[in-house]
Amino acid sequence: MSKKNVEDYLTEGIYGTRLPKQEERDYFLGTLRERIVLALTIGQIMTDKGLDYLEETMKNHRKATLLFNGKIASRFLKAEKELANKYSIPYTVITNEHVETDIGAVLTYDYAIDKEQIFLELDNNQTNQQNTKDHHKQSVVTKLKNFFQ
Results as ranks from 00 to 15, higher is better:
residue 96 N to V: 10
residue 103 I to M: 06
residue 41 T to L: 05
residue 45 I to Y: 01
residue 85 N to E: 13
residue 71 K to G: 14
residue 71 K to L: 05
residue 100 E to Y: 03
residue 10 L to S: 02
residue 96 N to P: 03
residue 137 K to D: 13
residue 98 H to F: 13
residue 12 E to R: 15
residue 35 R to I: 00
residue 143 K to H: 10
residue 70 G to Y: 03
residue 80 E to A: 09
residue 57 T to R: 03
residue 145 K to H: 07
residue 74 S to D: 10
residue 69 N to G: 08
residue 100 E to L: 07
residue 77 L to I: 06
residue 34 E to D: 15
residue 126 Q to E: 11
residue 37 V to N: 01
residue 28 F to D: 03
residue 20 P to V: 06
residue 79 A to E: 11
residue 113 I to V: 13
residue 46 M to L: 07
residue 90 P to F: 01
residue 126 Q to D: 14
residue 67 L to N: 02
residue 32 L to M: 10
residue 71 K to A: 04
residue 101 T to M: 03
residue 44 Q to H: 02
residue 140 V to Y: 08
residue 80 E to V: 03
residue 92 T to F: 11
residue 75 R to N: 14
residue 12 E to W: 09
residue 53 Y to V: 05
residue 148 F to I: 05
residue 86 K to C: 10
residue 133 K to A: 09
residue 126 Q to S: 13
residue 67 L to S: 04
residue 1 M to Y: 09
residue 115 K to I: 09
residue 99 V to E: 08
residue 138 Q to K: 15
residue 80 E to K: 09
residue 23 E to G: 08
residue 46 M to E: 15
residue 68 F to A: 07
residue 55 E to P: 05
residue 78 K to W: 05
residue 34 E to S: 12
residue 43 G to F: 08
residue 31 T to G: 03
residue 99 V to F: 10
residue 84 A to K: 02
residue 136 H to S: 10
residue 75 R to M: 05
residue 112 A to P: 07
residue 14 I to F: 14
residue 45 I to M: 08
residue 133 K to V: 09
residue 128 N to A: 12
residue 10 L to Y: 07
residue 126 Q to M: 14
residue 90 P to R: 03
residue 114 D to C: 09
residue 4 K to N: 14
residue 139 S to K: 15
residue 101 T to V: 10
residue 46 M to I: 14
residue 143 K to R: 12
residue 101 T to N: 07
residue 32 L to Y: 14
residue 44 Q to Y: 00
residue 100 E to D: 03
residue 92 T to G: 00
residue 28 F to H: 06
residue 83 L to V: 09
residue 27 Y to E: 08
residue 70 G to C: 08
residue 6 V to C: 03
residue 65 T to M: 11
residue 125 N to G: 02
residue 89 I to Q: 01
residue 60 N to Y: 06
residue 29 L to I: 06
residue 57 T to Q: 14
residue 100 E to R: 12
residue 147 F to N: 08
residue 94 I to Q: 06
residue 90 P to Q: 04
residue 5 N to P: 00
residue 104 G to C: 00
residue 56 E to V: 04
residue 132 T to Q: 14
residue 81 K to T: 05
residue 24 E to H: 02
residue 24 E to D: 07
residue 133 K to W: 09
residue 95 T to V: 11
residue 77 L to R: 03
residue 89 I to K: 00
residue 138 Q to H: 14
residue 34 E to L: 02
residue 46 M to N: 10
residue 90 P to S: 06
residue 70 G to I: 08
residue 146 N to Q: 13
residue 32 L to H: 12
residue 88 S to H: 13
residue 45 I to H: 00
residue 110 D to R: 12
residue 30 G to Y: 00
residue 111 Y to C: 04
residue 97 E to A: 15
residue 76 F to C: 07
residue 4 K to Y: 11
residue 138 Q to A: 14
residue 61 H to V: 01
residue 117 Q to C: 07
residue 9 Y to M: 06
residue 109 Y to A: 02
residue 127 T to Q: 12
residue 42 I to G: 00
residue 105 A to D: 00
residue 110 D to F: 05
residue 125 N to R: 13
residue 73 A to G: 09
residue 104 G to P: 01
residue 23 E to Y: 11
residue 112 A to R: 12
residue 95 T to M: 09
residue 136 H to W: 11
residue 136 H to N: 13
residue 39 A to L: 04
residue 33 R to E: 13
residue 35 R to E: 10
residue 19 L to Q: 15
residue 36 I to G: 04
